[in-house]
Design a protein around this nucleic acid. Structure first.
Length: 263
DNA sequence: ATGGTTGCGGTGCAA
């Protein structure tokens, strides 16, 4: 089973790119972020025609997450628990049944950016991370294969940026952000890409501005974190960097992980 | 040199 995540930066504008990538990488489950549309604007039929079931948690204009799955959904839950006042669509959780029995649980997340840090946006990010940690801690008690995949808007370590000094005052790399990310990992989660490779220069995002792509000025902010039961089944992971060079690209590229699970 | 680009929605905001 191959599970992927991709911040597409508008699913409607990126539909052709997304379908081309699905045909190439053939993931079984895909978490999409920044779909930037409401549920009824999501191009559901195009993905169904490509063989995917569709779960959408949209929002007008920005944010919005979705999950595509070749296997049918047993459960779909929209929204991250812990704040009834939070109206931003940044979290979706699904459960799919494995053909041989058992389940896989997948959370698709679009963690708040948090910039500028001297505004209310940064405490919102930290509070969201605290809610995510609490939710994952509860889910880990189920002792299931769990994959929490998405745009974390966190640069975990200096080697996850081409120029870490550019990010020291940025909400993606501030010490409190990195500490909150480590606190989530310390619950017992495995970073799939880092488990598969310790090489430097692995990035998932290149800004549209200032020729960041041409200069390979990238950062690694899209992650798949695995419960112990999922990590035990991990067989590989990768980043589809070449997608950033396609026409009309997203500023993020897909990240995927393979598991020894029949699909 | 304090810039630059993209997307949504309809002009300023978010990233």
């Amino acid at each position: 089973m191959r599970i992927a995540t991709w911040n597409v930066n508008s699913v409607r504008l990126r539909l052709d790119n997304t379908l081309a990538w699905l045909a190439e990488r053939k993931p079984d489950v895909v978490c999409l972020q920044e779909i930037k549309c409401q549920d009824d604007q999501f191009p559901r039929e195009a993905f169904e025609a490509a063989g995917y079931n569709v779960a959408v948690h949209g929002q007008k204009g920005f944010n919005g997450v979705a999950v595509l799955s070749r296997l049918p959904f047993d459960e779909v839950t929209n929204g991250l628990p812990g704040d009834d006042e939070d109206v931003q669509s940044r979290f979706i959780e699904v459960v799919v049944s494995r053909p041989g029995g058992g389940v896989v649980r997948i959370c698709g997340i679009y963690l708040p950016n948090g910039n500028p840090p001297d505004t209310e946006k940064y405490p919102y990010k930290l509070a969201w991370m605290a809610r995510l940690k609490a939710h994952i801690a509860a889910r880990l008690e189920l002792e299931e294969p769990l994959i929490v995949a998405g745009d974390y808007n966190v640069i975990p370590e200096p080697e996850d940026a081409a120029h870490p000094e550019m990010w020291v005052r940025d909400a993606l790399f501030l010490p409190r952000t990195r500490a909150a990310f480590r606190a989530i990992e310390t619950l017992g989660l495995t970073d799939a890409v880092r488990a598969a490779s310790d090489e430097a220069g692995l990035y998932t995002f290149w800004d549209y501005q200032a020729g960041a792509w041409q200069k390979n000025n990238g950062i690694r902010i899209d992650h798949l974190l695995l419960s112990p039961q999922a990590a035990d089944l991990l067989t590989g992971a990768g980043i589809d960097k070449h997608v950033r060079s396609w026409e009309k690209p997203s500023d993020h590229v897909p990240v995927w992980a393979d598991f020894d699970i029949a699909a």
